[in-house]
């Protein structure tokens, strides 16, 4: 399709504008972290805001976020790898039902779905209320559709011929999966892990609704805003959790990219 020049220019401007609208809050937050009050243009550059944070309790919240991120990633891979594999490679009764049901969490807004889990736990497992496994489960269930979808795409673009070749060479199906299929879908696996980790470490609702008070970083920030409103120290907290989580994800990417040399384009 050939577009005329004015149309192209308009599209270009629209794209830049959208990018700017998306990125602006992040820039504003970074600027505000180093000032005395939330304002534009920023004035009075200072590091005072860093001193106004109750560091021990915020560190605890960050640690909880990261723990939740790690365990959720592991749990999600354990659930979603087999699920994505059978959905993509096997034909079995109930397959189409499963592929629809897996997407249930995306239909409900986060709060309603997590509340539904809360009610379910209160009825059937009252002694587990507020425990870490329940928060973990709530976090993981919400991210299942994202991770299954990402993994399913990896399996779909990987020729089953590699597995068949491995089987004829004398590998058991599990051996073939671990030594051949898994490394070949490696890049997709890392992407899925990054999605799972980010979603869990940045999560708010499960800790808020299902937890027993220990906040995640997002929940901690929410409480701070409730207490003191939007201040530069809130901006600092947001900045820190962003840097930590994105830093971990980037590090994961660089470490694993070496592992899968020859597969990443």
């Amino acid at each position: 399709m050939k577009l005329s020049r004015p149309v192209l220019v308009t599209l270009n401007i629209a794209a830049l504008l959208l990018a700017f609208i998306l990125i602006w809050p992040v820039i504003q937050m970074m600027l505000s972290s180093f000032t005395t009050d939330i304002d534009f243009p920023p004035r009075n550059f200072t590091l005072n805001a860093f001193g106004n944070i109750v560091w021990p309790s915020y560190f605890l919240a960050i640690r909880f976020s990261l723990e939740l991120g790690l365990w959720t990633t592991l749990l999600l891979l354990a659930i979603c790898l087999p699920a994505a594999y059978v959905l993509e490679r096997r034909r079995f009764p109930g397959r189409s039902l499963l592929s629809v049901l897996i997407f249930v969490p995306t239909i409900f807004p986060g709060v309603t779905y997590v509340s539904a889990i809360g009610i379910y736990v209160a009825i059937f497992f009252p002694y587990l209320r507020g425990t870490f496994p329940i928060v973990l489960l709530g976090t993981a269930m919400g991210a299942i559709p994202l991770v299954v979808r990402a993994l399913q795409a990896s399996f779909a673009t990987t020729d089953p011929v590699y597995e068949e070749a491995a089987l004829v060479m004398g590998a058991h199906p599990l051996q073939a999966f671990v030594r051949v299929t898994l490394p070949i879908i490696g890049p997709g696996l890392i992407t899925a892990s990054m999605i799972a980790f980010t979603a869990a470490a940045m999560s708010f609702t499960p800790a808020f609704i299902l937890g027993s008070g220990q906040p995640t970083a997002a929940y901690y920030i929410y409480r701070e805003i409730g207490k003191v409103g939007f201040t530069p120290s809130v901006a600092v907290m947001v900045l820190i959790i962003q840097v930590v989580v994105l830093g971990i994800v980037q590090a994961m990417y660089f470490i694993f990219r070496r592992q899968f040399r020859g597969l990443f384009v």
């Binding site: 020729d159 011929v161 590699y162 068949e164 070749a165 491995a166 089987l167 004829v168 060479m169 004398g170 590998a171 058991h172 051949v180 490394p183 070949i184």
Partner: peptide
Amino acid sequence: PFHRNLGMVFQRPSMF
């Protein structure tokens, strides 16, 4: 298949 002592070459590329 993994208990049969066979070698197989496929139409599509299958080198790991």
